[in-house]
Amino acid sequence: MLGVGICLLPLGLGAPAWLGVTSFALAGVSWAPYQATAMALFQRVAPAGRLAPVLAANSAVALLAAPAGVAAGGVLVGWWGAQVTLLASGLATITLGLGAALLVRTRSARATAGSW
């Protein structure tokens, strides 16, 4: 997630076209393994009896998130323009990724401390 956000920054900062295309390609390459990684995580973490409902909930959220993101992106592009929207998207993605990393680190530290 952090990689995608970082790759979006040159697009939002008005970098030259070659750098924008390169960073957009890198964003796609870094995002590509997300679905497989997420499925592996669900299968590892969810109890076997709860796996089907967990995957169904994930699919329901993903099914709604894509069109909602397109609609929100369209409105933001209308208000701010494409460049500022890409910059905001990159910064929001980086912030979300850092927050998730901090949460995982905090929970990991608590789990480790609790095991003694």
Rank of each mutant, 00 (worst) to 15 (best):
A62K: 03
A92C: 14
W18S: 12
L9N: 05
S108G: 15
Q83L: 08
L9V: 12
W31Q: 09
A100P: 02
R44S: 09
A100Q: 15
A38T: 06
P10A: 12
Q43F: 02
P16E: 07
W79E: 09
C7R: 01
L26N: 00
A56P: 01
P53S: 05
G5P: 00
P47R: 12
M1T: 13
A56M: 07
W80N: 05
P10W: 04
A17W: 11
P16L: 07
T93H: 10
G14R: 10
M39P: 01
A56K: 06
V54G: 00
I94M: 13
A15Y: 06
V4S: 00
V77P: 00
G3P: 00
S30M: 09
V45W: 05
V104H: 13
L11T: 01
G49Q: 06
A36K: 02
R105D: 12
L26R: 00
T37W: 07
L19W: 09
W80A: 15
G14T: 09
T106A: 15
A68E: 03
A72H: 03
A46L: 06
G99A: 14
L76C: 08
A72Y: 05
V104C: 12
P53K: 03
M1K: 07
L64W: 05
I94Q: 12
P33F: 05
G114L: 11
R105S: 14
R110L: 13
Q83W: 06
A15V: 08
V104I: 14
L11D: 00
L26I: 01
S59V: 06
G81A: 08
A71N: 05
A36C: 02
L19K: 08
T22G: 05
I6H: 00
A111I: 07
T106S: 13
A113R: 15
G20C: 12
A62E: 06
A15I: 10
A46D: 02
V45S: 05
A68Q: 03
V54I: 07
R44Y: 04
T37R: 04
V4C: 01
G81W: 08
L102V: 15
L19S: 09
A17V: 13
A111F: 08
A56V: 09
L19F: 07
L64T: 08
S89P: 02
G114M: 07
A68K: 04
A25C: 08
S108E: 13
